[in-house]
């Protein structure tokens, strides 16, 4: 579009991770995605934490001990860029953890993070509206910005991580299934339908979205089409029904 050229960043990030997986003869995974982020983005480490619904994030993968330590530290002190990213639903990009403004914002976290050897931390929430799947955090031993192209790639890798986590959630519910729907997160009707199902079943958005996807897989119908049926009130989800 509009002369901005280049491949779709999400597709490009996907091929990086797929290439990495093929080279190692392993399936695509969260771990490989984090390793790919370190290779491609010029950062010291990458850490992915997931929110299992308890409100207590768990570290799923960390490429180095520092990343694991930063995640643990934020959990312990209850503040930090990842905590804010998760809460606000947008990235929190901290170019200098030692800057006075940063210390004011997270007085408990920053001195300890700097002591541990981190000077920049970029936290990307993995979310779909109110649904929070986790956070991808990239850290650097040196202060400084992610250059714009790397920031775009980081956003794409975060989008990919989100899709991997959402697929896992859907798998737990419906069993491994064809992912040909491509997860049309740009389609507002998918989110409206999620909201409606949340009301129909009296469940949260995450559960409602997982049910919608499970139904789409089970019926082998495109997610967007099913969502349109829900919004048009041609399809209701009933609280009693067994969705497996």
């Amino acid at each position: 579009m509009s002369g901005h050229g280049g491949a779709n960043p999400l597709a490009r990030a996907g091929s990086w991770v797929a290439d990495h997986a093929a080279a190692l003869g392993e399936p695509v995974s969260i771990g490989l995605l984090c390793e790919t982020a370190v290779d491609r983005l010029d950062v010291s480490g990458a850490t992915l934490t997931v929110d299992p619904g308890s409100g207590w994030p768990e570290t799923r993968y960390a490429t180095d001990a520092l990343g694991a330590g930063l995640a643990e530290l934020q959990l312990t002190v209850g503040e930090g860029p990842c905590v804010d990213a998760e809460r606000g639903g947008g990235p929190v990009l901290v170019t200098d953890l030692d800057a006075p403004g940063t210390q004011l914002r997270w007085p408990l976290f920053t001195p300890l993070a700097v002591d541990a050897g981190a000077h920049a931390l970029f936290a990307f929430p993995l979310c779909v509206g109110a649904i929070r799947a986790g956070v991808l955090a990239l850290h650097r031993a040196q202060a400084g910005s992610l250059e714009p192209a790397k920031l775009t790639d980081a956003l794409a890798l975060a989008g990919l991580a989100l899709r991997l986590l959402l697929d896992e959630q859907a798998d737990r519910r419906a069993g491994s299934a064809d992912r040909a729907d491509g997860l049309p997160l740009h389609d507002p009707q998918v989110h409206q339908a999620t909201g409606m199902i949340s009301g129909q079943l009296g469940v949260g958005m995450e559960e409602a979205f997982a049910r919608l996807r499970a139904r789409a897989f089970a019926g082998q119908r495109p997610l967007a089409e099913l969502a349109a049926d829900v919004v048009a009130r041609r399809l209701r989800f009933e609280p009693t029904e067994d969705t497996t």
Binding site: T194, G195, G199
Partner: peptide
């Protein structure tokens, strides 16, 4: 950094608004 934070947060907020609309409509 702040420009990116704002735009991405706004894009996610648009999704929250759609989810809320669905819940309200229902």
């Amino acid at each position: 950094e702040i420009v990116t934070e704002q735009l991405q947060t706004a894009l996610n907020s648009r999704i929250v608004i759609e989810q809320a609309k669905g819940l309200i409509a229902e």
